[in-house]
């Protein structure tokens, strides 16, 4: 039961994007479509789970004073792995996400979970925490991407060529695909998420 709570807190109650406001740069930058948001979310989830796992294993070996640089090196190693994996297996996504894949390393969500959770808890809890927070992040990015894509271009792409839908024909509100739309859409989504959170808890 406790582990379920640990897992599910990332979705609404402590959602990294809508409630904690962590990792906003990739959130705003890559969510021009639901697929990009999902891809970025899953890449971050991988880094988060692996770095939480490693940090939790080595937590007793690191002297307190150098723990932050150590965490950063651990995170950077997994980010490099994600960079290579996406480049090899999903090159189109790699092109779309651009510099935001190496920038996962400075995503405050990843460092924040290492520092606040993984360095104080056992290995299993750390993995569950990483998975829950990561999937909550992916959920937020996918929702934001879907809203922007539907309003901006009238289509919804979860996986290209497999799950592509046309919502309406004709021109969408182009501004939602451009930079200002990211801020506007996120502003309204944060408001809705706050409402939802108050209803549920």
């Amino acid at each position: 039961m406790k582990q379920w709570e640990n897992f599910s807190k990332g979705f609404i109650r402590d959602n990294p994007v809508f409630v904690l406001f962590l990792g906003l740069c990739p959130t705003l930058a890559v969510t021009t479509s639901a697929y990009n948001g999902l891809g970025m979310g899953l890449a971050t989830t991988f880094v988060l789970v692996m770095s939480n796992l490693v940090v939790s294993i080595i937590k007793n070996l690191i002297p307190g004073k150098v723990r932050i640089p150590t965490f950063i090196v651990v995170i950077a190693s997994f980010v490099t792995m994600v960079e290579m994996l996406t480049q090899a297996f999903v090159p189109d996504l790699y092109e779309q996400l651009g510099i935001f894949i190496p920038l996962i390393v400075v995503n405050c969500l990843v460092l924040g979970r290492s520092e606040a959770f993984a360095s104080k808890n056992d290995i299993f809890s750390a993995i569950i925490d990483g998975l829950g927070m990561g999937l909550g992040f992916a959920l937020a990015l996918t929702v934001l991407g879907a809203v922007r894509e539907v309003l901006g271009s009238g289509s919804l792409t979860l996986i290209p060529d497999v799950a592509e839908f046309t919502i309406y024909q004709g021109d969408g509100m182009l501004v939602f695909v451009l930079a200002p739309g990211a801020f506007l859409a996120l502003g309204y989504l944060i408001m809705l998420a706050d409402k939802l959170k108050k209803k549920m808890y």
Partner: peptide, 21 residues
């Protein structure tokens, strides 16, 4: 009331970004 704090900050940022466009 529901827009106070962070949500309105994002809307303002959106308008600023629109101006920079």
């Amino acid at each position: 009331k529901p827009m106070r704090g962070v949500p309105i900050a994002f809307i303002v940022a959106g308008l600023l970004s629109l101006a920079f466009m």
